[in-house]
Simulated scan of single mutants.
Amino acid sequence: MRRAVCPGSFDPITNGHLDIIARAARLYDTVHVAVMINKAKDGMFTIDERISLIEEVTGELGNVKVESFHGLLVDFCKQRDIPAIVKGLRAVSDFDYELQMAQMNIGLSGVETLFVPTNPAYSFLSSSLVKEVAQWGGDISHLVPVPVLDALTAKLRQQ
């Protein structure tokens, strides 16, 4: 069985993330989405909320498993016998950072990293940018799946 992982904080998941996950799901038997926990950051959504949203928007793919993880991504991979990490690249600046991570990961554990060029429609997109635009009342309906838009709108109303 061919397995890969798509890691990230997904706070929240965007259409760009979803595009990379869906493309990986066409190439692998199982795609694990690792929602990485960074205790140094306060997210808008809790880990459980992120997992729930990702499960909802990837449900139709049929071969995606969503889990949280704290620690090194290569440890997540080792624990689940996952030989590949799939990462989307938006720009050259992403490549510079991600190449260093990929080289470290293969050196630590032998886990390969595959880079997937982002769909040009999402090349500018990030969770941080989506949250900022939403906080200022901008239209993000074309940037996130409908369940995420609804959840984000509800969170902003609570603030």
Rank of each mutant, 00 (worst) to 15 (best):
A34I: 10
A91D: 14
T46D: 02
Y122Q: 05
D96E: 14
Q159Y: 10
T153I: 02
V57Y: 02
S109Q: 00
F124Y: 15
S128W: 11
T118C: 13
A22N: 01
W136K: 12
D139C: 10
S123C: 08
I37K: 04
S68Q: 10
A40L: 05
T113N: 07
L53P: 05
E67N: 07
T58M: 03
S68D: 11
R90D: 03
K78N: 13
F76R: 07
Q100Y: 03
D11H: 04
T46Y: 01
E112N: 12
R2T: 15
N105T: 00
A22C: 01
F76A: 10
K155C: 03
I85Q: 06
F124M: 11
K65T: 14
V92C: 01
T58V: 11
E55Y: 04
V146C: 00
K131Q: 10
F69L: 01
K87L: 07
S123D: 05
V144P: 07
P117Y: 04
A151I: 04
A134C: 07
R26A: 14
M36H: 01
L149D: 05
G137L: 07
V116Q: 11
D94A: 12
A151G: 03
T153K: 15
H32Q: 00
P117E: 05
V33A: 08
L108C: 02
G8S: 05
A34V: 05
R23K: 13
A151S: 09
I20M: 03
N15E: 09
I13Y: 00
V33N: 09
T153F: 04
L129T: 14
V116R: 01
E112A: 14
L27S: 14
G8M: 08
S9K: 11
T58I: 05
R3A: 15
D81F: 06
V35N: 00
S109P: 03
R50M: 07
N105H: 07
R23W: 06
S68Y: 09
P145L: 06
F69A: 02
A4I: 13
L129W: 06
A24G: 11
L156H: 02
R90A: 07
G137C: 08
H70F: 12
N63I: 01
Q158T: 12
C77I: 09
I20H: 04
L152M: 13
E132H: 11
V144W: 09
G107L: 09
D94Q: 13
Q79A: 15
E49F: 03
K41V: 14
E56R: 12
V66C: 07
D94N: 11
A24M: 12
